[in-house]
Amino acid sequence: MSESMQIHEEFEIKWGMVIDVDKCTGCGACQIACQAENNIPPSTQSFDRLQSLHWLFVYKLDNGLPYPDSDIAYLPRPCMQCGNPSCVTVCPVVATTKEEEGAIVSQIYPRCIGCRYCMAACPYHSRVFNWFDPQWPKGMEKTLTPYASVRPRGVVEKCTFCHHRFQLAKRRARAEGRNPHHLREGEYVTACAEACPTGAIVFGDLKNSHHRVHQLAQSEYAFRLLERLGTDPQVYYLSRRSWVRRQGDNHVQKDQQRGE
């Protein structure tokens, strides 16, 4: 890989997720909580990965075997907030950055020119484009939250790990005279993690040994999506099922993988 592709920087705090695929029932509460929190407009059409605005999508995986040997899993996919984001380097106008605080990949809507180069760069399809102006049924705009501005058509958007909640948590910590850089577990969680009824989505600072994600990410059952590409995602998945772990990446041969 050439030099220009690497802007890998290490941060003091690295917010991340560990999603236990074996606990996800695919109910979709996380997706809806995300839409409400981040002012993602509803649509009169069902999900269409080609046109829908979505920050978090729950994929349905199967092991490819016929009944009765079949198995199914649901895999929620937020933005991976890559340590080495493929999208950040390509943006011509610095509309997306790997934030210093918390190592979250930001998206600056007023800056974005809508060239969609970042979407071409991201292999996770975490980035979506505002193909039309956003619309809410009359009156429903009253439920817009102050957390995220409403994006006009023509800009790219993506999951921000509910960055506003991080700001809020830091403000609260400062007000209480605590160090805003050492938030306690649970002080800052994303809307999807908060909503998840089975607790499949665990959120925290991957570098903070007091946070659950720190240990969970080191589990022998942990894996990340497309690790081979070198994106260094900050979202980990857990599954005791080897076929699920195997679908986390592409494999040419029956090569070995962690936990197999």
């Binding site: 380097t89 800056r111 974005c112 020119i113 505002n130």
Partner: peptide, 19 residues
């Protein structure tokens, strides 16, 4: 580009890492 009026941001906010 989605925001043609912002086309000139390419000069003003240029990202030197981007091809």
């Amino acid at each position: 580009i989605g925001q043609p009026l912002r086309g000139w941001f390419g000069y003003w906010h240029a990202n030197v890492h981007s091809m």
